[in-house]
Structure formats: structure tokens, C-alpha cells
């Protein structure tokens, strides 16, 4: 799969992204290295010391005055090559993708009901690029959607999302889970 990201708001956003890219290219490559803090390991509790990277409630701190993450429009092309078993793990892990909190998933009827059920996602014939955008940054479709902004806030990587999509697009997922249990 091949993924490209671009911002949705003209030259101002481009300038910000450029500045960010320059900052990253000129020195360190990750936030953790920039700040000297331990990076989050997906599947582990999120280190509370890292949470001031994002907008926060405390207006007495810099994070309280931080702009929201920029809306990112992404494109997806090529084949779906992810690992659906790993995708299932990412989607159901409370400390990783945590999709299960709000959605019922293939093989997981115990999921939440805040978002629509995705148990039969493979039967809906939705384009890969649509699904990829929805997971990466749902605000392109609905600014008030409940979903986390998985891409812009680096919750999931493009590869992670590829795995989750492979899991969602596997046909007859219920049978697959049942077969695995036998």
C-alpha cells in the first residue's frame, strides 16, 4: 500500500507542516528524542508525562493554549497487504487502537454501541481510501465525529491502520474466528 498525506487548508497549513518537517529533519526524528521522555509503547499504558504534547484543559500551561491537531487528508492506493490477526489485536486492545470501546467488531459482539457496528464491514463494499481516511482523520467527513484522530495524533501508524483494515475487510470474519477456535 502507498499512503500520502496532505493538509486541507492551503498555504497556511502547508507552512506549518513545512516548519514541522524542517524541525524534525534538522535534528531528532521523534517527539521522545526531542523531549528526552520515554516514548509510548502501543499496548502499554500511555505515559502521562507525554500528554502535554496535545491540547489540554490547563490554561496555565502551554498545552492549554495549543491549537487543535491540523485536519489531514490522506490518500490510499495499492493493495491491502496488512496482517488481519494483528489488526484484530490492535482494534481490540484498550491501550492501542481501542476500536472495541465504541464499535462491535467482526467476532466481537461485546463491543460498544457509541459508534456503528463494524461486524459486517467486509460486506459493505466501501472503498479502501474511504476507510483509510476515516481511521486516519475522521474530521474530513464529520468535524464533530467522536472518533479519535488516529493519524494526526500518532495513535496508529499507517502500517497499523493497514492491519486494522485487513481485519475489517476479511470476508466472513465470524467464520474465521470460529475456525480458529476449533
Amino acid at each position: 500500500m502507498r499512503v500520502t498525506i496532505h493538509e486541507t487548508r492551503g498555504w497556511i497549513r502547508s507552512a506549518r507542516v513545512l516548519a514541522l518537517l524542517l524541525a524534525v529533519a534538522s535534528g531528532s526524528t521523534t517527539w521522545a528524542e526531542e523531549t528526552g521522555k520515554t516514548e509510548w509503547v502501543p499496548g502499554e499504558p500511555y505515559p502521562t508525562a507525554l500528554l502535554d504534547r496535545y491540547p489540554c484543559h490547563d490554561y496555565e500551561l502551554p498545552c492549554g493554549n495549543m491549537a487543535p491537531p491540523i485536519v489531514q487528508q490522506v490518500e490510499f492506493s495499492g493493495e491491502l497487504t496488512g496482517d488481519s490477526a494483528l489488526g484484530e489485536k490492535i482494534a481490540t486492545n484498550l491501550r492501542w487502537g481501542n476500536c472495541l470501546s465504541c464499535h462491535k467488531l467482526p467476532g466481537h459482539p461485546e463491543g460498544g454501541t457509541i459508534g456503528p457496528s463494524l461486524a459486517d464491514y467486509s460486506t459493505r463494499s466501501l472503498p479502501l481510501s474511504y476507510t483509510y481516511q476515516r481511521i486516519w482523520d475522521v474530521r474530513v467527513f464529520n468535524p464533530n465525529a467522536h472518533m479519535p484522530v488516529y493519524g494526526p495524533n500518532r495513535i496508529l501508524t499507517p502500517e497499523d491502520i493497514g492491519h486494522v483494515m485487513a481485519y475489517l475487510y476479511v470476508p466472513h470474519a465470524e467464520n474465521r474466528i470460529a475456525a480458529k477456535q476449533d
Partner: peptide, 8 residues
């Protein structure tokens, strides 16, 4: 206000 890693 939307805040945090999840933007909630």
C-alpha cells in the same frame, strides 16, 4: 473543549 491524545 477537545483535548488529549484522542482529541476528546
Amino acid at each position: 473543549k477537545r483535548v488529549g491524545h484522542f482529541h476528546f
